[in-house]
Design a protein around this nucleic acid. Structure first.
Lengths: 343, 343
DNA sequence: TTGAAAGCGCTAACAC
DNA sequence: GTGTTAGCGCTTTCAA
């Protein structure tokens, strides 16, 4: 029923009355062949639907021209856009991409990286739950497997990363709320355990609050895949001094928050202002557009791939790369009720 | 600088003073080993960071346990969500996923499928520009490579597909506009050349218009990656009888259309009602939520993977599978200005 | 329970 | 310009 075994280089060689080496040359060093031979071999190959096996080739050359990618989920467009950038860069270089997801479960990082390494990928691009102390990253370093983290960021720059400055970016976002006149600002965040970025962004939130001499609130931690934020939101809004603005650790979360605020009868931005983080394409297009910190996701993916290629070509282990973030003003932030402008 | 050669089964064998066959057995048929031997081999393997090479294994067993996935882009969440479903299903079965994208360029389908087949993927899951006559699909059939199309749909069911009934779904969507009282309805569509789905959805649009004895308009075809729809929209709205409602061939497009209608000073749904197609997660969460046809994207991905596994296990070539679509009423459809309810 | 041997498809010396 | 040969890492008979 299913695929018959593909033709081998030997079969082509027999049919064209040449040696396997000559067939191999046709595909790898066509210049070396006598034109007449080349034609004969080409014809035989076509007749047999021959397509060189990367499996045989990979084994022989000890190079797979394959990259592994590991991200929490592809349901969040921030990772999908990044992967799209990686795929484009890989295509340009003739590399293939093996993809794994963890669904934000740190304990899935082991099995997935093992699978990738088993395939002998030449390098890895990944986003892990926590890049600071991470047994899988330690493994990659011990075994000297080239890798680049995307989105993750490590204090001291001790790992090869491509990211924005999460803390500074979060600070900018919250500062924008402060500038709009908000004094009671809370942060809604995806689980800290599942995301070191979320932790850094919380620090940025605290920085901005401290700089404005405002009281930072405890973070409102929710699961990344939350689909009803009403209980959490109701609790925050019931605090003695309810926030007039919410900073969300990512855009997906911000959108869920906005929808559920509406379901709770709170208007955005009328009752509550909201700021996100990521700048996924869709957050720009909706109305009002989400005010958010834009990360250049495709560029992050592309840069990570290119740094990996550079390292594979012999360059030193890449230093951390900080790509610029950008604050995008949407319509989800206005001054709090009853505030005088330029207070 | 870069990775030293990974340990081989021979090195482990030497270190454990057994043969390579015994090491192999530890990983493939551990029950066959004497417990003491197993421990010794395990220790040696750990000490050397040994991890069986899938490259060697794949060559020997002539099975790669790898699936290829080809989609137009991962920047559209409908494909990313589908891939997320495929990845989850593959993980359950111990399969790996090789991903390629075409950026909606039909002429990239050849090189990308060749790359995948070169890797000897055991099956393919793909969305092509046009599945009816497609040289790459013909190639897959000629070479008897198992494949399942996702989203694509072929009249007569002559190809293995997993999709919704695009035409009927589009008909339902437009019927909903008709039921709201709209008489002048236009369709904004991604390029027909790049998407047979778009063509089918246009047919569904015409069906619904005909059934309501309304005049179908020529489609407003735009590129899938359009980022400013204002020129196209301005042209449609300038027609002698401007539409009061727009049916868009996908959600991403619908969102761009909504934003650009706003930029043109038209309110949605006040001036123009809008319906989308896909039901990407984000379209649900925005406000007003987009009225759209929901496709179960993750389920489509999962079902495609499972049908491929069934075929690999010996089942017959899968028949087309139609998954149910669902109309989701959002806030982007209201009766046209000046219409009387229940006209 | 373990080992020896062969071979999966391919490429790169090396020889002619 | 082309062929011969060896071997990449692994699994699987087959024999002991």
């Amino acid at each position: 029923m299913t695929a018959p075994r593909p033709a081998t280089i030997q079969q082509v060689a027999r049919k064209a009355r040449v040696s396997a080496a000559t067939v191999s040359r046709l595909f790898n060093h066509p210049g070396l062949l006598d034109p007449a031979t080349a034609t004969r071999v080409r014809r035989a190959a076509t007749a047999l639907n021959f397509r060189p096996s990367r499996v045989g080739r990979n084994l022989r050359t000890e190079a797979t021209r394959t990259l592994g990618v590991l991200v929490p989920t592809l349901a969040n467009p921030v990772f999908a856009e990044c992967l799209d950038g990686i795929a484009a860069a890989a295509r340009d270089r003739g590399y293939s991409i093996l993809v794994e997801t963890t669904d934000y479960r740190a304990d899935a990082e082991h099995a997935t990286t093992e699978a990738l390494l088993g395939h002998r990928v030449e390098g890895l691009i990944l986003t892990v739950a926590d890049a600071r102390r991470n047994p899988e990253l330690a493994k990659l370093e011990r075994e000297r497997v080239p890798y680049v983290l995307v989105y993750n960021q490590v204090p001291g720059g001790r790992r090869p990363t491509v990211s924005v400055d999460n803390r500074a970016a979060a600070r900018d976002a919250v500062r924008l709320l402060v500038a709009a006149g908000h004094r009671r600002i809370a942060m809604v965040s995806g689980s800290f355990r599942a995301s070191d970025r979320a932790q850094l962004r919380y620090l940025g939130y605290r920085d901005a609050m401290a700089a404005a001499r405002l009281a930072a609130a405890e973070p409102v931690e929710v699961p990344f895949d939350i689909d009803d934020a009403r209980p959490a939101l109701a609790a925050v809004l019931a605090r003695r001094s309810a926030p007039t603005a919410l900073f969300c650790s990512n855009d997906l979360l911000a959108l869920v928050v906005m929808r559920d605020l509406a379901r709770l009868g709170r208007a955005v931005p009328g009752d509550v202002s909201v700021v996100g983080f990521d700048g996924i394409r869709l957050s720009e297009v909706l109305q009002p557009a989400l005010t958010t910190v834009v990360q250049p996701s495709r560029a992050i993916g592309r840069a990570a791939a290119e740094r990996l290629f550079a390292e594979l070509a012999g360059a030193a282990r890449p230093a951390p790369l900080l790509l610029p973030h950008r604050l995008r003003a949407g319509g989800t932030v206005v001054p709090p009720r009853g505030s005088s402008p330029k207070s």
